[in-house]
């Protein structure tokens, strides 16, 4: 089994502090980490490897410093890491990112299972997994909550839908995106850290991947962010005098979310 897990480097916290005076964002010093959903994807790959053997490669696209998230993936059980990095990639949107990542698979040959987290906590788009699947013409299983069955040719999983669950079976190769329910992240031990720290990370750039530079980066991305705003934040606690009123508010909040 050749499994590839895609990891995104994201800020450790998506909390945004608003300076009360200037109303600007306060984010002094940003700590980065692997997208939490992606670590669940690594755990799923490890589960498969335990049964079927083979190799797990973690891939990230980002700045050179993103090698830290590959090492994080190695701590959780990936065998090696590939860092896809090129200044030409800066500003890539989900389409361009999917394009580059599909080129990585082309470069590696073929993967049996391509794992992604359900979504990234900074962008929340849930697009790159299906995007890579489409570019490679692989089938896609989004929002996996459990591996139900496995063999040499196919995988059966539980996937979440808006109305419940589907149990679906698909032959390899396949793209699967993983929910946090799929497994429990194990605790990392010093051994894991030491192994990850000693691992060498392979670098790949645009020319090595035979990427059409017109399709990547800010220039090649179909979408463009044209504005960023901070939603209005609460100032004062609204005090309620009766639980019934609180009940109404909770109902309204829940209804709005549906």
């Amino acid at each position: 089994m050749f499994q590839i897990v895609f990891i995104k480097q994201v800020p450790s916290s998506t909390k945004i502090k608003l300076d009360p005076v200037s109303h600007t964002l306060v984010r002094s010093g940003v700590k980065m980490q692997a997208n939490p959903y992606d670590l669940h994807a690594v755990m799923a790959a490890v589960e498969v490897k335990k049964q079927l053997g083979g190799k797990i490669v973690a891939v990230t696209m980002g700045p050179p410093s993103a090698d830290a998230v590959l090492r994080q993936a190695i701590m959780y059980g990936a065998d090696e890491g590939i860092l896809v990095s090129d200044v030409l990639f800066a500003g890539s949107d989900t389409w361009s990112t999917s394009y580059v990542l599909s080129k990585v698979i082309n470069h590696l040959g073929k993967g049996d299972i391509l794992w992604f987290g359900k979504q990234a906590i900074d962008g929340d788009t849930a697009q790159v997994g299906p995007g890579v699947a489409a570019q490679l013409s692989y089938p896609q299983l989004t929002e996996m909550t459990k591996i139900v069955d496995l063999d040499e040719v196919s995988i059966t999983v539980n996937k979440r839908t808006d109305f419940g669950y589907n149990i679906v079976k698909v032959p390899y190769p396949v793209v699967i995106t993983v929910c946090k329910e799929a497994n429990v992240l194990r605790s990392i031990a010093l051994n894991d850290w030491e192994r990850a720290t000693c691992s060498s990370i392979q670098m790949m750039n645009a020319s090595q991947l035979d990427v059409d530079v017109h399709k990547v980066g800010l220039k090649g991305s179909p979408t463009r962010v044209v504005g960023i705003a901070v939603p209005s934040v609460k100032n004062e606690t609204v005090w309620l005098d009766h639980p019934a009123r609180l009940g109404q508010i909770i109902k309204d909040l829940i209804d709005n979310e549906k």
Binding site: R186, I188, A189, L190, N191, W193, E194
Partner: peptide
Amino acid sequence: TLSENAALFEKYYTDIRSLGMA
């Protein structure tokens, strides 16, 4: 830090290197 000091701590707790840290 943990790595640097593991050799010392190992004398007291042999499995320090495989102990998961939450």
